[in-house]
């Protein structure tokens, strides 16, 4: 009852609860929050032995640099909740942050996206964690649908649209028509997999241990998805496996391409499977229009050229690919009446 009363004063929120970053879009205001999905927790003795130390960007700086009693956690893994309580704390913090100047603390309606491959249990977990964070109503939307709406594709029309969202934890492939998902596939190969592949490659090839943050930085700086890309170089520092001392190394983009090519092959294979499963009329539409790519993976250098070469489809990188999902959630919320029932059901 109180929630409903406060709801009158609330702004509705759209949340992209991603493995790597959480974005919040406020109805009528746009994207107001973009923070890493990281929570730092301090373990103390006593009754309440877990204290939240930092959330978001501040906590991300602590990843891999914490003393024994502090733990920096990424509460989401592969697009779904790995630690329910910490996710709830994080959501609560973010929601409060975007509403901090409010006179009354309202309970908003929230749209959250979920990976299309998530199970009922995982969806229920996300829904309840948003409820626990103070939502009045929670709507779930599948990520491919959110991307398509966010990229302004004609999802409600009788024409096929294909989207690829390479996020932090999952890669989502979706084929949509008439406001529904015709085919969708969620692949647990994405940005984090690239980072892990780079770490493994550098360890195997050069005998050097590097951290996740370093791997992510080189991926962003010189990483490429195409074998014919311009060659770039960068310095990295890490710990030598044999000597145990720190050592620096020059990595080239060719090496990075080698490192992540397995993951890329997996993604390309999933796209091909999706095209095989698509009804012919929709496949014709998609071949004509192409595929829209969003998510952090769309920022990987020359990914469009690689995908064009391997799939034969025209590839369109969405503008501002990192925010397409949350924009789609926001638009779904704002134009609920126009777009119809685009939300996922448990």
């Amino acid at each position: 009852m109180l929630k409903r009363v406060f709801g009158f004063f609330s702004n509705d929120l759209a949340i992209d609860l991603g493995t790597a970053n959480t974005l919040i879009y406020v109805r009528g205001k746009g994207i107001v929050l973009d923070e890493p999905s990281v929570v730092a927790i301090r373990h103390t003795t006593g009754m309440n032995n877990k204290q939240v130390l930092a959330v978001g960007g501040e906590a991300k700086l602590m990843l891999g640099r914490t003393p024994g009693n502090i733990q920096a956690i990424r509460p989401l893994k592969d697009g779904v909740i790995a630690d329910f309580n910490v996710t709830e704390v994080m959501l609560k913090y973010f929601i409060r942050k975007v509403q901090e100047n409010r006179f009354l603390r309202p309970s908003p309606r929230i749209v959250i996206c979920v990976p299309c491959g998530s199970t009922q249990v995982e969806r229920r977990a996300i829904k309840e964690s948003a409820m626990g964070a103070g939502a009045r109503e929670v709507y779930l939307i599948e990520e491919p649908m959110a991307v398509a709406i966010g990229a302004n594709l004609p999802v409600a029309e009788p024409t096929g649209s294909m989207v690829l969202d390479i996020g932090g934890g999952t890669t989502e492939i979706g084929i949509l028509a008439l406001g529904g998902v015709v085919y969708s596939q969620s692949l647990r190969v994405a940005g984090d997999t690239f980072d892990e592949s780079i770490i493994n490659y550098v360890r195997r090839k050069h005998g050097l241990l590097i951290g996740v943050a370093t791997a992510e930085r080189v991926k962003k700086d010189i990483g490429t998805a195409w074998s014919k890309s311009e060659r770039l170089e960068t310095d990295i520092k890490g710990r030598d496996l044999a000597e145990g001392l720190s050592r620096s190394l020059v990595l080239t983009s060719d090496e990075l391409y080698d490192a992540i090519s397995d993951a890329l092959v997996a993604i390309v294979h999933a796209i091909k499977v999706a095209l095989e499963q698509t009804p012919p009329e929709l496949a014709a539409d998609i071949a004509d229009k192409g595929m829209v790519v969003a998510g952090g993976g769309a920022l990987l250098r020359d990914i469009d050229k690689r995908l064009m070469e391997d799939t034969g489809l025209p590839i369109v990188i969405a503008d501002d690919p990192l925010t397409r999902v949350v924009r789609g959630c926001g638009r779904a919320l704002e134009e609920m009446e126009v777009l119809g029932d685009v939300f996922a059901h448990e």
């Binding site: 990229a151 302004n152 594709l153 004609p154 024409t159 004509d288 229009k289 192409g290 829209v292 469009d304 025209p314 590839i315 369109v316 990188i317 969405a318 503008d319």
Partner: peptide
Amino acid sequence: LPGPTYVRGYLRN
């Protein structure tokens, strides 16, 4: 052409 999002992508490429 299909729509503004696609056109922007084509133009970019």
